[in-house]
Design a protein around this nucleic acid. Structure first.
Lengths: 222, 222
DNA sequence: TAGATTGTTAATCGATTAACAATC
DNA sequence: TAGATTGTTAATCGATTAACAATC
């Protein structure tokens, strides 16, 4: 029964909470053989302990011990698995401007098993250079080379889109054409997937969304 | 009746959709005196026309004309008002590294009435320099000057936090102490508001959240 | 043992979808 | 007029919260 549940597709809200649980473990850095309770997770993440247990139940994570909580290392691996980062994920960044390079060196990637393998741009003075991500040199290629690169690196399924708003849709269409399976669009322009396209995941503009949220909330607090 | 509804606090989901409607208008760039239907908004944003009308109803935006739709200019101003960017919003960026500077020149700000007034950092070689945001020179001050700056610029109520994960909590505490009312935390570390604090809005890590989402969805598609 | 904490079900709450009268 | 589209209510759906027996 739990097995089945684990296979279900989580809503995006669940994913966000799961990433919070995972971040909580990273933050606390407890010994692997210690235990953490749903109450403690509530304290760190702000998610209620009832919600935590409900989520674990839904995900088929039933490793809790009464009176103790969840075995830290087991939970750690379970959450990694749920987030699909247990084997690591390789991504490319398209658009090697400030935002693109900033994302490439973003802490999240290094510590959390998500890795930027290459950047792409059209500017000739960027192409051929490398971005030094804590000693690891990541190349910048010309956008023309996207097709070649993706066929040589079939493990790369995700692209982060940091090109100017004006050409974002065009590049997205090309990425989809070339077989990319997931895209985060960091431009504020809302992009659309080509009609026929199935099974490509698009997350639109997270940066703008959180900005609007905080502006709204700040000017509307009681 | 509608008046009251407008005053209610929107959920974050509504805000996101409203920002989509707003972005749709920006993208289409229709003549101000033309009309746009909920069906057309569905086409651009992916939000169903029923949801669009439900949202407008909830927000007290009842400016629709049967058979035509919503007057573009009226709708534009109504949405701006809802998003609280009709008068413009000034923010500061704390942490003038790559991410901080990238955000400072992010298109969203320029086109959408959100403005970065200043950056702050502790690195002596950054302090005193300026970031050139399309001709507008934005200064970088030392973090020590935060208190002074905020008391001289009481209109600034929002800070974007782009400092290293390791000192993010410390800086957040300081910002709250100094009276900041809204913070977007771009570090993956989950931050907490000081216990007693009321009425400070915190949005945690949008970048990491969307990454986790796309990774999950990509590796779990049917 | 008594207290704490899980796993799980049921109750509540909120958000989305569907439906349709009104009407331009 | 007929068709399209709104505003609004009601029905449905999904997500969160509450409750509690089981048990370590």
């Amino acid at each position: 029964m739990n097995k089945n549940k684990q296979q279900n597709k989580m809503s995006l809200k669940v994913i966000t909470r799961v990433s919070f649980y995972y971040e909580a473990l990273l933050k606390l850095d407890l010994p692997g053989d210690s235990y953490i309770s749903s109450k403690k997770l509530e304290e760190i993440t702000g998610v209620s302990c009832n919600q935590v247990r409900q989520d674990f139940f839904y995900l088929g994570i039933s490793i809790g011990k009464q009176k103790k909580g969840y075995h830290v290392e087991k939970l750690f691996h379970a959450l990694r698995k749920v987030l699909s980062i247990d084997k690591g994920a390789s991504v490319i960044v398209v658009g090697a401007g400030r935002l693109g390079r900033a994302l490439s060196e973003y802490k999240l990637f290094k510590v959390r098993n998500i890795q930027v393998d290459a950047l792409f741009d059209i500017k000739e003075d960027l192409v051929g250079t490398v971005v030094d991500i804590k000693g690891r040199k990541t190349p910048i290629y010309h956008v023309d080379k996207l097709g070649e690169y993706l066929s040589e690196n079939p493990n790369v399924k995700i692209a982060l889109l940091t090109v100017p708003e004006s050409c974002a849709q065009e590049i997205l269409d090309e990425l989809v054409e070339l077989g990319i399976k997931g895209v985060v669009n960091y431009s504020p322009r809302i992009l659309k997937l080509p009609e026929k396209t199935k099974a490509v995941q698009l997350v639109n503009d997270s940066i703008g969304a959180s900005l609007y949220k905080v502006v709204y909330q700040t000017y509307h607090r009681k």
